Simulated assay, not measured.
Amino acid sequence: MKLVYVFDAYCGWSHGFSPTLTEITRRHPDLPVEVVSGGLFTGARRVPIREFGYVQGANAKIAELTGAEFGPAYERLIADGSFVMDSEAAARGISALRAAAPERAAELAAALQRAFYVDGLSLSEAATYHAVAEEAGLSAEAVAAAFTGPDAAAQARADFRRAARYGVQGFPTLLAVDGDRVTVLAVGHATAAAVEAALGAA
């Protein structure tokens, strides 16, 4: 059995779920975790953040329920409403990081979300992946180069297709996959205890 974590790096609820996923992976170090990008802001949804009027209200709710941090640098980044959340770019970045250290995919996904929601770094910039990789002790130059390469773009598209095949409609979604059997462990907000109970039932 393995865990499949379907998230979007530009999803605040995914950011809030990071501590839960971190705790589950700590409790089950031998359980493989695959991270799949879901593609929340693509196509017609790739527009300036001002068009999503609910963002700051949603962030306040996420912080209240999960304790997630939304840093001053992030608030400055989105303050004028012009910032565009591009999930295809973020998925390319996840692919580049994942390729560098696949066994650390969950940790790197959380680090990337901190880079945006705490440090206010755009997930469309190669420099962001350079910084995240360097902090994680990976080859920063290789990860930044991979972000702009064709393999990462292909993997991003493959991630979106995989999320659709699993029938995921909300982010984050945590799945337990055992052969052809797929069990939903959590969607949106969930505590580690709740996930643990669902995992035991699976």
Rank of each mutant, 00 (worst) to 15 (best):
K2I: 05
Y5L: 13
G12K: 04
G12I: 04
G12N: 08
G12W: 03
H15S: 05
T22L: 05
I24M: 11
R26A: 14
H28K: 00
D30Y: 08
L31V: 15
L31Y: 01
V33G: 05
V35C: 13
V36C: 07
S37A: 14
G38Y: 08
G39D: 04
F41K: 02
F41W: 13
T42S: 02
R46A: 09
V47S: 06
V47W: 13
R50Y: 09
E51V: 00
E51K: 09
G53P: 10
G53M: 13
G53N: 13
Y54I: 12
Q56W: 00
Q56F: 01
Q56L: 15
A58M: 15
A60L: 15
K61D: 14
A63C: 08
A63E: 07
A63D: 12
G67S: 08
A68D: 10
E69Q: 10
E69M: 06
E69S: 06
P72T: 12
A73Y: 00
E75Y: 02
I78L: 08
A79N: 08
F83E: 15
M85N: 10
E88I: 11
A89T: 11
I94D: 09
I94Y: 14
I94M: 14
I94G: 13
R98N: 14
R98G: 04
A101L: 01
A101T: 12
P102I: 11
P102A: 10
E103N: 11
A105P: 12
A105N: 03
A106K: 02
E107Q: 12
E107R: 07
L108H: 05
A110W: 03
A111Q: 14
L112Y: 01
Q113K: 13
A115F: 06
Y117V: 07
Y117Q: 11
V118H: 09
S124Y: 15
S124P: 03
S124N: 13
E125G: 04
T128C: 07
H130Q: 10
A131C: 05
V132F: 03
E135L: 10
E135H: 11
A136F: 06
A136R: 00
S139K: 02
A140P: 03
A140C: 05
E141Y: 01
V143K: 00
V143L: 01
A145H: 08
G149W: 00
P150Y: 00
A152N: 07
A152Y: 03
A154G: 14
Q155R: 15
A156T: 00
R157C: 01
R162V: 05
A164V: 00
Y166D: 05
G167I: 11
V168Q: 02
V168L: 06
F171P: 01
P172C: 09
T173D: 05
T173Y: 04
L174A: 04
L174N: 05
L174C: 08
L175D: 06
D178S: 14
D180Y: 10
V182L: 12
V182A: 14
V184N: 09
L185G: 01
L185E: 03
A186G: 07
G188V: 00
G188H: 02
G188C: 09
H189M: 04
A190W: 09
T191N: 04
E196N: 00
E196V: 10
A197Q: 12
A198G: 11
G200L: 08
A202K: 09
A202P: 08
